[in-house]
Amino acid sequence: MTEDEIRPIINKLLKKVAPETEPEKLKPDDNIQQTLAMDSFDYLQFIIGMDEEFGIKTPEEDYGRIMTLRDLLGYVMKIKK
């Protein structure tokens, strides 16, 4: 999958968890959780949605590696090569 394919899906999933936010305005190096004022509960719901959508299993130790949009897109692209 390409970045252009993944980004809209990420936006949709973030919007589902935090409907009051505008994930499409996230910049590549923004910390997603902080920028969208998501707590750890919201972020876990987002990762659950992401695992289901992309058919992946994100281990808990990887949570710290997908904090920014750039890192997250890179992470998914690597798995979905």
């Binding site: 750890s40 509960f41 876990l44 659950i48 695992d51 299993k57 994100t58 808990e60």
Partner: peptide, 12 residues
């Protein structure tokens, strides 16, 4: 580690 992502516990 023993749980699926849906059943994971948060520190809270």
């Amino acid at each position: 580690k023993q749980k699926s992502v849906k059943d994971r516990l948060l520190p809270v």
